[in-house]
């Protein structure tokens, strides 16, 4: 495709019956997503609060746990998600330009990076298992058993990363569904703003991880 320019498709929105104008519909959708993201933030904030309280009440135990977490996998995963944010931005930009095929590629790249994150995360959990870092398994000894309070922060780690993982799994599923929908020729003419709305969600999962990583892995290591 060396010198052939990309054929830009028309980009527009199909007006739903409850709205009067397309601008109104577009803004309503964006505002709705922001309102949803507010709830997501408060959901994770509760966990960050738990982590902070544990750091106040049991600082030594928390440090003990953080030194046993897989710092480098966490860091790599952060890089992976930052990359996926870039591909998501590319999908949004190209959807605005009407470059449907490019956009589909960017969406698939985003989904792949998300899956890579999950793979790495799974490997990390396996290592945790291997190193006897799963105190909730009744039939398996716990390597930090001498420090009881360390269990609490470790549990916050599992719940936070697990909840974030659930968000990623949901995110990837929706993303694949959206890519399938967007592969139809009329998509950009009728639902272009869905890409933008979804993009907000994806960036926000990324943002949550950007907070999770230091809260669990980095601080007072």
């Amino acid at each position: 495709m060396a010198d052939i320019g990309i054929a830009a498709e028309p980009v527009d929105l199909e007006l739903a019956e409850q709205f009067t104008t397309k601008a109104q519909q577009r803004e309503a959708a964006t505002l709705g997503m922001w309102a949803w993201l507010v709830t997501e933030l408060l959901l994770f904030a509760g966990l960050f609060l738990c982590a902070l309280i544990l750091r106040i009440q049991h600082p030594q135990s928390v440090t003990l746990v953080t030194t046993h977490l897989k710092f480098w996998i966490g860091a790599t995963n952060t890089v992976v998600l930052i990359c996926s944010s870039l591909t998501m931005s590319a999908a949004i930009v190209t959807s605005r330009l009407g470059w449907r095929r490019f956009m589909l590629g960017a969406l698939l790249a985003t989904a792949s990076l998300g899956s890579l994150f999950l793979l790495l995360k799974g490997f990390e959990y396996y290592q945790d298992y291997d190193e006897h870092m799963m105190p909730f398994l009744a039939d398996r000894s716990y390597v930090l058993a001498h420090d009881q309070a360390s269990v609490l922060f470790l549990d916050v780690y599992y719940i936070t990363t697990g909840l974030h993982g659930v968000h990623l799994i949901t995110g990837i599923s929706i993303l694949l569904w959206l890519t399938w929908k967007a592969s139809r020729p009329a998509f950009l003419q009728t639902h272009q703003n869905r890409i933008e709305i979804y993009g907000l969600y994806w960036h926000f999962i990324d943002l949550i991880w950007i907070i999770v990583f230091p809260v669990l892995y980095v601080l007072n290591r």
Partner: peptide, 17 residues
Amino acid sequence: LMRLFAALGFFWVAIMF
């Protein structure tokens, strides 16, 4: 309006903390 909602969540987290 969107900026307000983007900030709102963080403000409420600050209250909670």
